[in-house]
Design a binder for these strands. Structure first.
Lengths: 263, 263
DNA sequence: TCGGCCGCATCGAAATTCGATATGGTCGGG
DNA sequence: CCCGACCATATCGAATTTCGATGCGGCCGA
């Protein structure tokens, strides 16, 4: 009934139950994006079957759900349209695109833009754009992919801009899981990496989120100095040693992030 | 009040007004993705201010809208999460990604996947994934971008798989506008290009949607032979002549599309 | 100082949503 | 061959939830 505290609490009088339940339904597909029957939807979203039926029909009629041959419901392609609108509407992303294009051209490695996410309690970052490198094969698309703040170079670079107590708070609330065998899970080690990033102005991570990957990120600040996102440069360990990667790309990432800061 | 006929009509008893209005609100940002005040939202979505207030608060509390410093509402980053779920859930996209990665590696040009969109009356196609080429600068991201079916090589390749009367119907319902000075606007010319594509098994277009761009696409068929999307290869006119581009890439596009068909 | 728009809040009326329930179909196992 | 389970779909009376007119204080530009 009560909303998770991570989003602003509002007057219950203004809260639309049916809209909220509709959102529960579409979010149910985050756990498992397969087509679902009404019964499955009801269970996954925590509503009764009648509600699932009404919501399903309404979202179906609007194109946010689509029907398989068997009548099950799956996510509709209109979500692509909405995320496109979002990307267009985000002022940072608009501003960043040309900068990142240049950066990728100069670096000849993959370049990502991620958004620090205070509305999600800062526990995760969301990738917004990716400029692939020549041979990149891993993930073609990742707009919308989330990763834990503590495990990514971009997240750590953002943490480095926050006061110690906020860092500690965020780390304390993080659920530490291993994304790769190399993921650091010790809070003190992570904290040390954040402090190092604070001193350096960027953060480097080796195989923290993906095996074989070396990544480096610099945080983007708003006009108050708070982190709003990060510029990532990522390469393959088969082509780079850590010191070489650091030497070559740290200045480029910091310059790009600096150019995007303060807006 | 009555829904556009393009989506399945449902029993009015099952239709949730408030959900539908919430969708009107988020779709209002398609026209102009700027932050809006409640009054502006109300006007843009065709609802009253009270409804805008309730819907705004509800979507805000769930992270689908965010607030600027001035209190205006803009689209929230959760739309990225939803489109990510959609991309993950779409069986064609999942299947296509490795194929397109290989294709891009072989072609060394930009490769796109678009979806034919019967739920939108087949009037437009939606781009789902893009694999950039080395020097690509135009658009980093385009998942969610829509283009008219009649104007794109991918759309025409899809039309080529449909019976004549359906092609004519779709073209007749299309609103022809010039995307570039070179966009063909004569229905007979477009129809001829579709017929050519039917004979060739692929469709080539020069500067139809973007100046300086030459694009070639082959349609992907479902197991009944109906078009469900297209594989695009796009290059720059500064590097390719039409015959060379055709010779080199038509077989590759057709092979990839064939491999993805019939699922 | 005025007028307009802003976000935010209130409240009575009632339309809209709710949820239990029913129907007929399909699928798979016993 | 029939049974049970689950499916999408449909119905309907009850009442919760939504509706929308209205009011408030604040901010900004005229």
């Amino acid at each position: 009934m009560s909303q998770p505290h991570r989003f602003p609490t509002i007057d219950d009088r203004l809260f639309l139950q049916s809209v909220s339940r509709a959102l529960d339904v579409i979010e149910a597909y985050a756990a498992s994006p397969r087509p679902m029957s009404l019964g499955e939807i009801a269970e996954a979203a925590g509503i009764n079957k009648s509600a699932a039926q009404r919501i399903g029909q309404t979202l179906l009629s609007r194109g946010y759900l689509e029907q398989t041959e068997t009548g099950r419901l799956k996510l509709g392609r209109l979500f692509l349209d909405r995320s496109f609108d979002y990307l267009r509407s985000n002022e940072l992303i608009e501003r960043a695109t040309p900068v990142l294009t240049d950066l990728r051209k100069a670096a000849e490695e993959r370049v990502d833009l991620s958004l620090f996410d205070p509305v999600n309690d800062s526990l995760s970052i969301v990738y917004a754009t990716r400029m692939q490198s020549k041979r990149e094969t891993f993930y073609a698309t990742l707009a919308g992919r989330r990763q834990p703040t503590y495990a990514t170079s971009g997240g750590r670079a953002c943490l480095a801009l926050l006061p110690d107590e906020e860092v500690d708070d965020i780390l304390a609330r993080s659920v530490i899981t291993r994304l790769t065998p190399k993921t650091e899970t010790d809070l003190e080690t992570i904290r040390a990496a954040v402090m190092q990033a604070r001193a350096d102005g960027y953060c480097l991570g080796v195989e923290q989120a993906l095996l074989g990957e070396i990544a480096l990120a610099a945080a983007i600040r708003d006009r108050n100095g708070r982190p709003i996102g990060a510029v990532h440069i990522a390469g393959s360990l088969s082509e780079w040693t850590e010191p070489d990667f650091r030497r070559r790309f740290a200045p480029m990432a910091m310059e790009a992030a600096g150019a995007l800061s303060g807006g």
